[in-house]
Computed example of a mutant assay.
Amino acid sequence: MSDVSYTTEEIAKLLKISKVTVYDLIKKGELPSYRVGKQMRVDAADLEAYKQRERGGSFSVLGDASDRTSSYTPMQSSVINGSRTIVITGQDISVDILSRHIEKTVSGIRPLRAYVGSMDSLISMYRGECDIVSTHLFDGETGEYNIPYVRRIFTGFSYLIVNLLSRQCGFFVQKGNPLGMHGWADLKKNGLRVANRERGVGSRVLLDEQLRLLGIKGDQLEGYDREESNQIGIAAKVASGEADFGIGNEKTAATVGNVDFIPLIEERYDLVMMKRQENREWIRSVMQILNSQVFLNELRSIPGYDLSKTGKIMFET
């Protein structure tokens, strides 16, 4: 057994918990881990030892976020190999770049990446399972990104919302746009087939909000309940002719090719951080990274990013 190890995704499936909860266990030191390239791995012996402790009732975190209570308990700082771990959520490559800069330049901090959608990330932060959340959630009532959701979830908390970047979001359509889709009102066309994301991610929330504003039910779109786990999968479905459209960003369309991109809205991709005393130093360091030319130049090499607000505080309590 000592030669067997598992990725965080495999641990999540074995224990039937979310990946964020796995990172929570690693962060608290309950699951010893080590890095292989970009992956965190846990030895089978350490997983078995954790399961034995859990059966003995010595630890109460086990269980997916949906099974946890709604009360918030501040997480104790975890120190592994002399470094405090912080969990960073998000699915965009810009978050990977930020995490790498933190690891290289912030002394005493060890970032762990969790590839989780916007809404699940905010809920996990509420429960104390992560430290930096990236989010791009559109609110149809206000036309605003992120702030309405964060304010509703974190009532009474002290936090910071900082812009990471902005980017164009819209329709992926087949080459030549045969159905002539140019705006949200085109969602009313009969017989549309959609390639859809899972609930809680930013592009799914954007589609659901636009459908709600137009008075359209999701089940009026063929394929609405068939979910893809990433935007590349969405664009690929459209490119292959299996769907008429999907929601995503310009960068993904350029990556996949063989699809046309119809820009409809500039989405703001923000970071949320809790303003606690023990977080003060690393938050200051993250702000310095966001405003550094080294970091900005690396993001500039990626097409489709608007960095005019990067590092700007969008909201603060």
Rank of each mutant, 00 (worst) to 15 (best):
D120P: 00
D120W: 00
S121T: 04
S121A: 11
S121I: 02
L122S: 08
I123M: 06
M125H: 01
M125C: 03
Y126F: 02
Y126M: 12
R127Y: 00
R127W: 00
E129Q: 07
C130Q: 02
C130S: 02
D131K: 01
D131T: 02
I132N: 08
V133P: 06
V133R: 01
V133W: 00
S134Y: 05
T135P: 00
H136W: 12
D139F: 07
D139R: 05
D139A: 14
D139K: 09
G140W: 07
G140H: 10
G140M: 08
G140V: 06
E141S: 14
T142Q: 12
G143H: 09
G143Q: 06
E144W: 01
E144V: 13
Y145T: 06
N146W: 11
N146S: 07
N146K: 04
I147P: 05
P148S: 10
P148D: 11
Y149A: 12
Y149Q: 10
V150I: 15
V150M: 08
V150L: 05
V150W: 06
R151C: 12
R151V: 07
R151Q: 15
I153L: 15
I153W: 03
I153A: 08
I153V: 13
F154C: 14
T155I: 05
G156W: 04
G156M: 09
F157L: 04
F157S: 11
Y159K: 09
L160V: 04
L160D: 04
I161R: 09
V162M: 04
N163P: 02
N163C: 15
L164R: 08
L164K: 09
S166H: 10
S166K: 15
S166E: 15
R167D: 00
R167Y: 14
R167F: 13
G170R: 09
G170P: 13
G170H: 13
F171I: 09
F171C: 08
F172G: 06
V173M: 09
Q174K: 13
Q174W: 00
Q174A: 12
G176M: 08
N177A: 11
L179G: 03
G180D: 08
G180M: 05
M181R: 10
M181V: 04
H182Q: 07
H182M: 03
G183T: 07
W184R: 07
W184C: 02
W184H: 04
A185G: 07
A185I: 00
A185S: 13
A185R: 07
A185V: 05
D186P: 02
D186G: 05
D186E: 09
D186K: 08
D186F: 02
K188M: 05
N190R: 14
N190D: 15
N190Q: 14
L192F: 10
V194P: 11
A195E: 12
A195N: 11
A195K: 11
A195M: 10
N196V: 07
R197G: 12
G200C: 03
G200W: 01
V201N: 10
V201Q: 03
V201W: 02
V201L: 06
V201M: 05
V201F: 04
G202H: 04
G202V: 02
S203T: 15
S203R: 08
S203M: 11
S203G: 01
S203V: 14
S203D: 13
V205F: 09
L206C: 05
L207Q: 11
D208R: 00
D208K: 04
E209S: 13
L211M: 07
R212V: 01
R212F: 07
